[in-house]
Amino acid sequence: MKKLKKFFRYDNIGYFFVLPAVIYMLFFVGYPIVSNFILSFQDVTVKTLSSPNKPFAGIENYQTLFQDEVLRTSIINTLLFTVLCLVFQFMIGFLLALFFNRRFSFAKPVRGLLMMPWMIPITVTALIFKFMFSSNVGIINQALMGIGLISAPIDWLTQPATAMIALIISNVWIGIPFNMILISTGLTTIPTELYESAGIDGANKLQTFWKITVPMLKPTIGSVLILGFIYTFKVFDLVFVMTGGGPVNSTQMLSTYSYKLSFNMFKYSQGAAAANVLFVILFIVSLIYLKFAYSEEDL
C-alpha cells in the first residue's frame, strides 16, 4: 500500500488512463506482428496448419520468396502505384485546399461534400469504379466515346496497360479529400499578419506562396505525404475488388500477393514472409520521417 500511495503521490495516475490503449495495441497489433514474424520462419501449409509442432524452416521462405519474379513485380507495382497516387492526389488536394481557403459563399458546404469519397468504404468505392470502368456499360467508355476520344470501348480492367491506370484514378479520387482537409487545416494555422506584411512590402501572390505558405506548411506537408505513403503502400481492398492483382500480375501489390500466397496457394509461411517485407518497408519509411521531424524540431 505504501508503494501504491507513493506512486499516486507523483501524479502517475495518467498511466492508468493509457493502460487500456496499451493493452489494446499489444493484443490487436503487437501479437499479430510477432505471430506473423514467427510464422515466416516456419514451414506451415495445409497439412501442418493444425499441427502443434510446426517444422522450422529458418530463412528458407525468404530465400524462396526473393527468387520469385512475382515478388519483384509486386514491389515495383506497389512503388509505382504509391508514387503516382501521391503525386496526383497531393497536387489536386493542395489546389483544392488553397481554393477553399478563400472566403466565398458555400465554401464550407462544398468542402464538406468533397469529403464524401474519403468517408465511403473503400470496398464500395472499388465496386463503383469497377462498374464505371467496365468495357460494355461503363460510363468512362461512354463518356470518352461521346466526346470522340476513342472509337471503341476499352477493356480497362482486363488489359495490363490500362488496369494500373484505372486503379490509380480510383485511389486518387479516394485520397484527394484526405490531402485537402489536412492541408486546409495547416493553412488556418498561418498568421494572416504575415501576408499583410508581405503585401505592404510589395510581394505578389506567387512570392507569398513560395516564401510564406510553403515554408509554413512544411510540417503539414510532411505528415500528409508520409501518411499518404503508408495508406497507399498497404492498399489491398481496392486492388482485390477491382482487379485481384491481374491481369497477368500487372496490378499485383505486396498486400495482394501476400494474400494470394496465404489463402489461394495455401503457402502460409511464404505469405507471412511477404507481409513482413511490406511491414519492414513501411517501418523504414516511418523511421526516416521521424528522424527528419525531430531534426527540424531541434533547429
Rank of each mutant, 00 (worst) to 15 (best):
residue 103 R to L: 08
residue 286 S to R: 07
residue 216 M to G: 01
residue 206 L to T: 11
residue 77 N to K: 00
residue 143 A to D: 01
residue 284 I to Y: 04
residue 149 L to G: 14
residue 153 P to K: 00
residue 101 N to L: 04
residue 30 G to L: 04
residue 41 F to C: 10
residue 203 A to N: 12
residue 50 S to M: 09
residue 169 I to E: 00
residue 243 T to Q: 01
residue 19 L to V: 09
residue 102 R to W: 01
residue 275 A to E: 12
residue 212 I to C: 06
residue 77 N to A: 01
residue 257 Y to D: 13
residue 78 T to D: 03
residue 125 T to D: 07
residue 282 L to V: 15
residue 227 L to Y: 13
residue 74 S to L: 09
residue 215 P to T: 11
residue 47 K to R: 03
residue 188 T to H: 05
residue 252 Q to I: 09
residue 40 S to R: 12
residue 257 Y to G: 12
residue 226 I to W: 01
residue 28 F to K: 05
residue 47 K to V: 07
residue 200 I to P: 07
residue 268 Y to H: 11
residue 101 N to P: 10
residue 66 F to Q: 01
residue 209 F to Q: 04
residue 237 D to F: 00
residue 56 F to S: 03
residue 100 F to K: 02
residue 210 W to Y: 14
residue 284 I to T: 08
residue 231 Y to E: 15
residue 61 N to G: 09
residue 68 D to I: 02
residue 248 V to G: 09
residue 129 F to E: 05
residue 256 T to H: 03
residue 126 A to Y: 03
residue 205 K to Y: 08
residue 242 M to G: 10
residue 174 I to D: 00
residue 152 A to S: 14
residue 111 R to F: 07
residue 145 M to F: 04
residue 263 F to L: 12
residue 13 I to N: 14
residue 51 S to M: 10
residue 66 F to M: 06
residue 229 F to R: 02
residue 40 S to Y: 08
residue 177 P to A: 01
residue 45 T to N: 14
residue 231 Y to S: 15
residue 96 L to T: 11
residue 215 P to E: 09
residue 155 D to I: 10
residue 240 F to L: 02
residue 12 N to S: 06
residue 97 A to E: 12
